[in-house]
Design a binder for these strands. Structure first.
Lengths: 109, 109
DNA sequence: CTCAGCTATTCAGTGTTGCTAGATACCAGT
DNA sequence: ACTGGTATCTAGCAACACTGAATAGCTGAG
């Protein structure tokens, strides 16, 4: 997609990844692949890894290193209590924004 | 609001302002005030002015300088054809993102 | 055995964006 | 003169996603 998506992802991509981790633990490569499947066709791998480092540093996830049979060891991330809390706040923020935009969309046409 | 909103606004604030201008022409101070009324309680004025400069430079709006009775002259911005096109693309992008997030929200709980 | 190709992670450098914190300017009322 | 509301602009900052690469383990083709 275009530059528009890129800019819109700022701030939401983090929530998206947390939401994915809320379903079940996952590692970077897997998350990227799942995102691509879901239509985010050109999210850069580097972006995801950087994001994972960030949320780990903030204590939103727990990490476990697990050997892979197909390559180097995987770093499996799982959402912890703090992460779940943060995710809920993310949803509230998102709802707020989505409501405002829906209003604008209707009012503006 | 918090840092979360700030990051989420990146990329969407532009669309929001364009959507406001789609309803009717407006100037910076007015746009800021309207946003505050609509719940974006702490969007910085400087942000809006910078954004307006940007979308003008990209040719999405037309500008007209109109004297004010209450202060310095106003720069009234109105959406032109190119801006309307861009706004439509913004809505498409937004819809894409909103759908994905709605899916995640349901699936993830 | 070597090389391509998939898996898996990391990192330095870049551009865009919104915020901070001011400065500037016009006008009315005290 | 001074305060306060109106109105715009700017330089410097922080956060984020992207680019483009490097590194590393494993498998199968040649």
């Amino acid at each position: 997609m275009g530059k528009q998506v890129t800019e819109m992802l700022k701030g939401t991509l983090e929530g998206i990844v947390l939401a994915i981790l809320a379903i079940r633990p996952a590692y970077g490569y897997e998350i990227t692949a799942r995102l691509r499947d879901q239509g985010f066709s050109d999210i850069a791998e580097g972006t995801i890894y950087a994001l994972l480092v960030r949320i780990e540093r903030r204590g939103l996830v727990d990490v476990e290193k697990i050997p892979s049979e197909k390559g180097p060891p995987r770093k499996v991330y799982s959402l912890n209590a703090q992460g779940r809390e943060y995710l809920e706040e993310f949803w509230r923020t998102w709802s707020f924004l989505a409501e405002r935009l829906e209003q604008l969309r209707e009012g503006g046409n």
